[in-house]
């Protein structure tokens, strides 16, 4: 907290946000020891939750902060899984392959960014989908994958199913914590100020000297890497790789749903959205097609009536910031001016 004259203060950490960070740390610690008490089914479900949080946070980083709405992020999900299969087939330890695959995917996203980032709005959105469709076709050409028949991560079979489940759970938990941590640190850094300036007004950000393209590229590559981690982890839990399932636009639909409902451009929003999505899936996932119709309709309603999502609404009503990535100005007296609005 920095003191300025006249009793005006600029604050970042508040009592509630310190408390929130403490609870996050506590929750992570509890999750870490949870497998001791939980059954196999619960461990698998929580692993899925961690993967959803990664997907939501990464899509939010791209769309909410970078202003880049993509409907082709499944390309990185699919590539993360595909390279894991490839590396494991080449003899690398399957668990190491997961992360090596994500690194390769992140590296591939860099050249893609050079021309995709020159597209704007809807053109970028569908352009990414084309990239995904093309990559899907190219992966199908690999003989190892056997077209749409697919293959599986056979080398995981050397571990017994109990160990495998818990290791994947911990890896998913650690990946989620690390990726959220990286994003949080990034958003609070100097680059983060640039990112939030772009989110609020791209033209204005350019005019004060923010390097818009370079900043967006950073987010693009981070999102590609994170989503590839999620894809590789998903492969580890499912073990089978069918290109159609991994390169499905449904993944992007999930990401959009989570972020729109939770709060586009809100760090906490993506996490909230992922948790809500997880709960909805647990209760309504068995309804099949009506569940998907419900997801789509909810996305439409939120985009029309609550574009800042539930967290945006909570933040506005209760003036609450749990994991602050911006600053705000606090004037003496009852009125509070929010820094980034």
């Amino acid at each position: 907290m920095t003191s300025v004259t006249n009793g005006i203060t600029i604050e970042r950490w508040t009592r509630s946000s310190r408390l929130a960070l403490g609870s996050v740390a506590l929750a992570l610690a509890l999750f870490a020891i949870a497998p001791l008490a939980l059954g196999a089914g619960a461990i698998d479900r929580l692993t899925a939750l961690f993967i959803y949080v990664i997907l939501a946070a990464m899509w939010n980083a791209l769309a909410g902060f970078g202003g880049l709405v993509s409907v082709g992020q499944q390309v990185f999900f699919g590539l993360g899984a595909y390279f894991t299969i490839r590396l494991a087939d080449a003899g690398l330890n399957p668990f190491l392959s997961l992360f090596a695959a994500a690194l390769i995917t992140g590296a591939i996203s860099l050249p893609i960014s050079f021309f995709m980032l020159r597209l704007k709005g809807g053109e970028f959105a569908i352009g990414m989908w084309v990239i995904s469709a093309l990559t899907h076709m190219l992966v199908n050409l690999d003989r190892l994958i056997q077209g749409e028949t697919g293959t599986s991560l056979i080398s995981l079979n050397v571990y017994d199913s109990g160990t495998r489940r818990v290791v994947i759970y911990w890896l998913a938990l650690a990946s989620m914590a690390a990726l959220l941590g990286i994003l949080f640190a990034l958003l609070r850094s100097r680059a983060g100020a640039a990112i939030q300036a772009i989110r609020d007004n791209e033209d204005a950000a350019t005019s004060v000297g923010v390097r818009v393209i370079a900043t967006k590229r950073l987010l693009f590559v981070l999102a590609a890497f994170g989503i590839a981690v999620a894809g590789a982890l998903w492969l580890a839990t499912a073990t089978t790789f069918q290109p159609k399932t991994y390169f499905s636009v449904q993944w992007t639909a999930y990401m959009i749903f989570m972020v729109l409902v939770g709060g586009l451009g809100k760090f906490e929003g993506a996490i909230l959205g992922a948790v809500l999505f997880f709960v909805i899936e647990t209760f309504f996932g068995s309804m099949g097609v009506w569940y998907l119709i419900g997801l789509g309709a909810t996305a439409v309603v939120f985009s029309l009536f609550l574009p800042h999502g539930l967290w945006g609404e909570i933040e506005r009503r209760f003036d609450l910031r749990l994991l602050p990535v911006g600053y705000r100005l606090k004037l003496p007296g009852p009125t509070k001016i929010q820094w980034n609005q």
């Binding site: 809807g122 639909a253 996305a299 439409v300």
Partner: peptide, 15 residues
Amino acid sequence: GALLPILTTFGLAIV
């Protein structure tokens, strides 16, 4: 804004 119609129409497509 320019981004929301993308999300609206995408949701519509899913429905």
